[in-house]
Simulated scan of single mutants.
Amino acid sequence: MPQTIHVPVLEVNDLSVAFTRYDRGLRQSTVEVIRNLHLTVGRGELLAVVGSSGSGKSLLAHAILGILPDNAAVSGTLRYEGEPLTPARQEALRGKEIALVPQSVNFLDPLMRVGDQVRSSVREGDADAEVRRIFDRYRLAPGTERRFPFQLSGGMARRVLVSTATVGGPRLVIADEPTPGLDPAAVRETLSRFRELADEGCAVLLITHDIESVLPFADNVAVFYAGTTVETAPAGDFSGDGARLRHPYSRALWQALPQNGFSPIPGVQPHPSALPPGCLFAPRCAAAGTDCSRERPEMRELRGGTVRCIHAT
């Protein structure tokens, strides 16, 4: 997909999220699970966020929406349409201009007909007409609105979730792992719907583990590791042997796919309470030197993307 210039809708700068908890003996401790995270998604852009479990992808979504638990402390800057995204503004925009497509179809109310669930998200106009319009757009047959969630297939339930999130005309859609459990055809169909939203001017932030499936639909990709962004790159850079990628972890993710050699890297992602000094990826990086353990690298621009690595060229 060709790289295009996008007007920023969401800007995340130096975001950190920490949780206060009580250990054995009622000792209080604080664990920082997201640190110095940077990300931008623009109007008309589909940005895929990838990385292993525990890297902070879903927490980012919750921070943007303002739905973190009470024991979370957030620092850094969130801006929406150029203005600070304060807690009051998050509450006002959530479910309206900023919409979430959640990870699980269990978010659908099992005791409520799906048409009523979508109808409750209509902001203006004839609610019944809007439900028929959005169901027709997502190829949900007439009569679907009278069904309960248990009467839907997995693919239909996913489309109802997307319908609920988008019927109100949001400007930013956050999709948190929208394709698990779907067959390949349903995955392509689901991702094509998000691509359509972006093509119509919406900003789409799509969180996924499935790099391979999302690449044909994404404009750019943000790679997360141990609670921070290590690279953002045009989707087209994920090709061949990964030589166009900037960060060694991004290349490792790409090369770990079966069609790219299925080459694992040693070690595991560090726990937030036991982070290494310096570069977070250094203990697993074959190219790491002594300078990599001195201080954590800053995000910098490189070859049309950004990277957090002092050796990237």
Rank of each mutant, 00 (worst) to 15 (best):
H6E: 06
P8N: 05
V9N: 09
F19H: 03
R21F: 05
Y22S: 12
D23W: 04
Q28S: 12
S29T: 00
T30E: 15
V31C: 12
V33A: 15
R35F: 06
T40Y: 01
V41Q: 06
V41I: 12
G42K: 07
R43S: 15
G44K: 12
E45N: 05
E45H: 09
E45F: 13
L46K: 02
V49Y: 06
G51F: 02
G51S: 03
S55R: 03
L59Y: 00
L59K: 00
A61M: 03
G66S: 07
G66C: 10
L68N: 04
D70K: 09
N71T: 04
V74I: 09
V74C: 02
S75K: 07
L78W: 09
L78P: 01
Y80L: 13
E81R: 15
G82T: 08
R89H: 07
R89M: 12
Q90F: 05
E91H: 13
G95H: 07
K96G: 02
L100W: 05
N106F: 12
F107Q: 01
P110R: 11
L111T: 15
R113E: 15
V114R: 05
V114N: 08
R123W: 14
F135A: 03
D136R: 14
Y138M: 11
Y138E: 01
L140R: 03
P142Y: 06
P142E: 08
G143L: 02
R147C: 01
R147K: 14
F148V: 04
L152S: 10
G155V: 00
M156H: 04
A157D: 07
V160G: 03
V162H: 10
S163G: 11
A165W: 09
V167K: 11
G168E: 06
P170M: 13
P170Y: 13
R171Q: 14
L172W: 08
G181T: 15
R188H: 14
T190D: 09
F194K: 01
L197H: 02
L197I: 09
T208H: 02
H209Y: 00
S213F: 05
F217N: 02
A218Y: 04
V223W: 04
T229S: 12
V230I: 13
E231T: 10
E231A: 05
P234Q: 02
G236L: 08
G236C: 06
S239L: 05
G240W: 13
D241Y: 05
G242M: 12
L245F: 09
L245W: 10
R246A: 14
H247C: 04
Y249D: 07
R251S: 13
R251Y: 13
W254C: 06
A256F: 08
P258K: 11
I265F: 15
P266M: 10
G267A: 07
L275E: 11
L275C: 02
F281T: 00
A286K: 06
E295L: 15
E298P: 00
R303Q: 05
T306A: 12
R308C: 04
C309N: 08
H311D: 04
A312K: 01
